[in-house]
Design a protein around this nucleic acid. Structure first.
Lengths: 341, 341
DNA sequence: AGTGGTCGCTAAACTGATTTAGCAGAGCAT
DNA sequence: ATGCTCTGCTAAATCAGTTTAGCGACCACT
């Protein structure tokens, strides 16, 4: 790779100047007194030789690598990871930086290894990302340099970027209230573990809180709340069936995420009910399946790409110490209608 | 980041030896005549100081960075990207390497930039990945060093890793034949563009070929073939509806991917037909929704994680020049049954 | 004539590793 | 006593940049 690249010395020689002069010109140093003609010659020589600086050499001296480490617990499991990475990639490119990606798989040994690997490479900063919004403790080793938490917060008060799940909860509840749903709104996806342990999830509690707050203000109570051990389609399916077996049928369902909503759709379909005529459904995440469902599912989007961007911006440009809340936009789709009668 | 790390000189001083000696000991050089005691002292000093070599300095001299570039067209769009990356990450870690990830977004300017960025950082090799299996031409700039194509092939005969779509086609057809389906198998997802232009897709043609070959051998013809402009749920839905409007109802459907199958399920549900009692469905990709559907969808899995691994292995350990075909395992699920009567 | 300042530029040090070339001393044979 | 080899180690060069310190020429001023 890059066997015979021109070096700065080559450029200098061709320009008939010293390495010092060439270096200063190419770095656009202010206050140097090199003549306009010298500038020309250096630029021309660099151009002709296709000169590109060797960043290893440069960073040896400057201790800057224009490289950011993106350390996450799990890259693959959720399809959102890609968006987080893409946002970070875009923002990094705009700042002439590049991303070194590693994964810890939630394993302490791997984490140790990953962190050593990136520190050895002298990265300029670390983005420490979690795939589920949660609280975590960052390894002490990376605290020597800039760190931004992505989709996570930490007790250390490090800069962090998280989605505004509470706001999303309010949007969801407001959307239903505006349509006239009041006394027959049911919730699918309560989960003690996610709600009570911030190291597992921050989203569940925040979403619930946003929903409750909005409904309380409107003096509306929930018709029913279904607990689910996980937020997967099968649990949404089971929850929906249990709701339908009760005497009073809900007019609207809030699902804590789109996969639960997918399961709920399946149960509704089997029961011969139609969305949204019989029951409205609204949810969280904006997983691609939300748009694919029939009818398309109204939901609040996790702004992962935005978040990835923001993390890079915070890391390189600096910024607020308090957690940066990224809004979750409401996607109004076909699954919403006023209550039946 | 890493402000006051111990250097090799520190280790040498503490061990009472020269940098040369320390370097040789720590790199486990053969044939050096350093005493056992010198070894001890160096190891002890390195341990005590928590010494970690500065890789920028090392690679300046050795031109090795233990870093691989992962350049892909689009990271985020498909949820499979994560698996590709994860496989590569795992294999890289096992070999003490790390991944520098960039995205070209199919844009020539970005591509140029991405490639310069990674070459400037002296990567040891490049994995050039496509998110849809296809043929492509790699930019000349990276041909100076090792390159492996991932999920793609190129006219240059570079080493490449692709899924065995043709084998998957055979598996799918065989699975249906074994169940007794013969004269009423329909196909959803024919697509001229994907089948004819290798730069768009290699999968469509290969899958089709595998299916045809197996059916031909069994002297079975397809009942119907539906063309779809894209492989999205809505197209599967439309295709399924059109199939159901015809006089002879199929006993089994092959969908060219799981998203089409998802759409087909929706149409079947609306028509009041049940899978697999009325109609069997089988597909390609093993998207997570395949397992979430009711009944769960039989499909052939794209082995993305495997492929990511293999790419790193080919790059670092060397290997076959001909394209490395990774098998696509058949996932037998609930959507399969013998024909109705 | 001497002093001081600016201009335009460069030599050399420095970053932290690897690697080449080679030195001092011991042991042995001639 | 001389020459040779082997052992155990080190000085210095090298990689490709950045940065510090400063040099010589020219001009202006007193």
């Amino acid at each position: 790779m890059g066997r015979n690249r021109a070096t700065l010395a080559d450029v200098a020689r061709r320009a008939g100047l010293s390495k010092t002069a060439a270096s200063m010109v190419l770095n656009g140093r202010e206050g140097t007194r090199l003549s306009a003609e010298a500038h020309q010659r250096v630029f021309a020589a660099a151009e002709e030789l296709g000169y590109r600086p060797n960043l290893a050499a440069r960073s040896l001296r400057t201790r800057k690598t224009a490289t950011i480490a993106f350390v996450s617990d799990i890259v693959a499991t959720t399809r959102f990871a890609g968006d987080l990475i893409r946002g970070a990639l875009d923002a990094a490119r705009e700042r002439d930086h590049v991303l070194l990606i590693t994964e810890t798989q939630g394993d302490a040994t791997f984490e140790q290894y990953a962190i050593e690997a990136v520190l050895d490479r002298q990265v300029d900063g670390v983005i420490y990302a979690a795939m589920a919004t949660r609280r975590l403790t960052v390894p002490a080793a990376i605290l020597g340099g800039p760190v931004v938490l992505l989709n996570a917060t930490s007790p250390d008060g490090l800069p962090s970027v998280v989605p505004d799940d509470e706001g999303a909860g309010r949007s969801v509840a407001t959307a239903l209230l505006e349509l006239g749903h009041r006394d027959a709104i049911a919730l699918i996806g309560r989960n003690r573990l996610k709600e009570d342990d911030p190291e597992v999830s921050l989203a569940a509690r925040a979403r619930l809180h946003g929903i409750r707050q909005t409904l309380d203000e409107a003096k509306v109570g929930l018709l029913a709340e279904c607990f689910c051990t996980e937020w997967l389609p099968e649990h949404g399916y089971a929850a929906m069936r249990s709701l339908l077996s009760k005497p009073k049928r809900p007019s609207a369902i809030i699902c804590m995420n789109d996969r639960l909503a997918f399961g709920a759709y399946q149960a509704l379909g089997e029961a011969g009910l139609t969305v949204p005529e019989d029951i409205s459904v609204i949810s969280f995440d904006d997983d691609p399946i939300a748009a694919w469902l029939r009818p398309s599912l109204a939901t609040t989007a996790l702004p992962h790409e935005q978040m990835g961007r923001r993390a890079v911006e915070l890391l390189l440009d600096g910024g607020a110490a308090e957690p940066s809340l990224v809004p979750m936009p409401l996607r109004r789709r076909r699954s919403l209608a006023p209550p039946a009668s």
